[in-house]
């Protein structure tokens, strides 16, 4: 699945009755699409009549902010890292805008929120890239710091009150003709930018290189700290954008709103074929992964299982898929 040679998103992926393992390795998009279709069919079988254009639109709308968060994980995981602060950062940006919209205004709020996100990302990047703190520790710590600061902000802003701006609600939750989610306006450029960056730029190559073999990257003259600082800033800003969509979608401004999406964002990247060890994967698979997770979770809730059962099934599926990848991507 070398992203450099084939961009699976733009090429038609024929279903070939070739060995599945090989298919998984070379074109992970194909089996992922098959899984997605199977899940859609399964939904229709279990709850006849559920699948409709409107249902599809709702699925896409729910998957979009998750897919953006998962872009953060995809990019950081390619370098062998991870960004566990995306949940806190996304919650923070949505919340900050909600507190500022009635005072300084929407655009000031957006600017402040994204700047705050970028600072968090910068510190993550310096910690990981310069001080060599493990990304897991660094970003986990950062998520607590961001949450704490957001709580302080909440206390300071308690008088002004908070409200999700109309624009966010329209973009995050609105649908054209009940079918096409408005949030595509945000998602399409973001996704296009991530795909192009990973596949067609020198920077994207370096993400793969650092994840595949940091020693080789260094020997080739790559200064990893530069790459990593930029990476974690990008990740935090993308998380911030996802936060706007989450607050619009749910019409909630809360400092913990997006926390529950953190692990699904990692799962979407893993299911999409990005190796948590770095060096392998791509964003195309992640997008499908986010859709698959959204459909599964809708399917599970339509079955009426209690939350606990859904969590068990959800977790098991992630482990299963990750294990399957480990098997097929290592030769024999």
């Amino acid at each position: 699945m070398s992203v450099a040679e084939t961009t699976p998103e733009t090429r038609p992926a024929w279903f070939r009755p070739a060995a599945w393992a090989n298919l998984f390795r070379e074109r992970p998009i194909v089996p992922l699409l098959v899984i997605l279709v199977v899940l859609v069919v399964l939904s229709e079988v279990i709850r006849p009549g559920i699948v409709s254009l409107n249902w599809a639109g709702v699925m896409v709308r729910a998957a979009i902010p998750l897919a953006i968060l998962a872009a953060c994980q995809t990019m950081t995981m390619l370098t062998g890292g991870i960004d566990l602060s995306v949940g806190a950062v996304a919650s923070m940006t949505g919340f900050v805008v909600a507190t500022l919209v009635n005072g300084p205004g929407l655009w000031t709020g957006i600017a402040v929120a994204l700047a705050a996100a970028a600072v968090a990302g910068l510190i993550n990047g310096i910690g990981v890239g310069v001080f060599r703190v493990h990304p897991l520790i660094m970003t986990l710590g950062m998520s607590l710091v961001v949450l704490g600061l957001a709580n302080v902000w909440q206390l300071a802003m308690v008088q002004t009150g908070a409200g999700v701006p109309d624009l966010f609600r329209r973009v995050g939750a609105g649908m054209v003709a009940g079918v096409i989610p408005y949030s595509l306006v945000v998602f399409v450029p973001v996704a296009a930018w991530v795909l192009v960056t990973l596949n067609r730029t020198g920077y994207g190559r370096l993400l793969y290189a650092i994840g595949d073999n940091p020693v080789a990257a260094r020997l080739a003259g790559v200064k990893a700290w530069q790459v990593l600082i930029v990476l974690y800033v990008i990740s935090a800003v993308l998380a911030g954008i996802a936060g706007f969509l989450y607050s619009g979608l749910t019409n909630v401004a809360s400092v913990t709103l997006v926390d529950s999406a953190l692990l699904p964002s990692v799962a979407a990247a893993v299911i999409g074929g990005t190796s948590i060890l770095g060096g392998r994967g791509g964003y195309g698979g992640t997008i499908i992964g986010a859709l698959i997770l959204t459909v599964i979770s809708s399917l599970l809730s339509s079955l009426g299982y209690p939350e606990a059962v859904r969590q068990i099934l959800f977790g098991s599926m992630i482990v299963f898929v990750a294990a399957a990848y480990a098997r097929v991507t290592n030769e024999s």
């Binding site: 070398s2 040679e5 793969y208 073999n213 080739a220």
Partner: peptide, 23 residues
């Protein structure tokens, strides 16, 4: 050789790696 190569990447990317190294 394991020190110098990106084992999971293509021949092309391995050869082109130094091209992209500078900002």
């Amino acid at each position: 050789r394991a020190e110098a190569l990106l084992m999971q990447r293509s021949v092309k990317e391995n050869i082109a790696l130094p091209f992209s190294s500078r900002v």
